[in-house]
Amino acid sequence: MPEEFKAGCQRPSIVKNQEDVQKDSVQVAEIIKEESMIKVGKPAPDFTAPGFFEGKFANFSLSEYLGQWVVLCFYPGDFTFV
């Protein structure tokens, strides 16, 4: 379940996998480069990100939505017109 967090003065940080934290930045950069080739028929990279939903701030993981269809949409920014 999404874990609610208290709104502080700092931006909530992206939660990284324990595995990733241990790798040095060069390796992480290589992994990101490799995995940025999204392919149909292959697993969607999992992530945990802070979000706003139903009046609350919480951390959401893609893996929590296994068993459901997910539409993951990226967009340039809040208050943009399109």
């Binding site: 080739m37 296994l66 269809w69 990226f74």
Partner: peptide
């Protein structure tokens, strides 16, 4: 960082482009 993972982050503009991914109940990109 997540946008980079999905290959849709615009480094120059510092924003995400309009990427839309359909992910099935097994977590597979369709």
């Amino acid at each position: 960082n997540i946008g980079k993972l999905y290959g849709i982050y615009d480094e120059e503009g510092g924003v995400e482009t309009r990427g839309r991914f359909l992910i099935d109940p097994d977590g597979i990109v369709q």
